[in-house]
């Protein structure tokens, strides 16, 4: 909990400082943010997930497939098409380098959290979502 609070404060600080007219990022703040965050890609991921977590969430959609597509092809938005978005989403992801890597990164993180049953059904946020940033 303490780590979460420290991380949120650090994110706010970084966001605030980045909003200033500056073209250079505060590296020490980023380092602190990373240090105070809880790693979620752990060894447990290397073991098969429980059957319940890989069951299709909706129709043909499979959370493992969604995560793999996001992790490996997410810079091109392939996972968004798998999850039922508009035909132009690949262009948005590709033209922005997966949203500068951010959209891709967050999508992957959330789909992973869904895969290991952490959080509140993140996969559902993506299904048939037409918004560029599905998780907002």
């Amino acid at each position: 909990m303490k780590k979460l609070i420290v991380s949120i404060i650090a994110v706010c600080a970084i966001a605030f400082s980045a909003n200033a007219a500056s073209f250079k990022v505060n590296d020490s703040a980023i380092d602190a943010l990373i240090e105070n965050s809880t790693e979620v890609f752990t060894a447990e991921f290397m073991t098969p997930a429980p059957a319940a977590s890989v069951a299709p969430a909706k129709g043909e959609i499979n959370s493992t497939t969604a995560f793999l597509l996001s992790w490996l092809l997410g810079e091109f938005g392939v996972h968004r098409h798998y999850l039922g978005t508009t035909k132009w989403m690949w262009a948005v992801y590709t033209f922005t380098g997966g949203g500068l890597g951010v959209l891709w990164g967050v999508d992957t993180l959330l789909l992973f959290l869904d895969l290991i049953n952490v959080g509140d059904g993140y996969l559902g946020k993506f299904v048939n979502n037409e918004k560029i940033i599905a998780w907002l």
């Binding site: 991380s7 943010l33 809880t38 790693e39 979620v40 992790w71 990164g105 992957t108 993180l109």
Partner: peptide
């Protein structure tokens, strides 16, 4: 990647 206090590393 850091989001909401969670960190993922690739």
């Amino acid at each position: 990647t850091v989001a909401k206090g969670k960190l993922s590393t690739v």
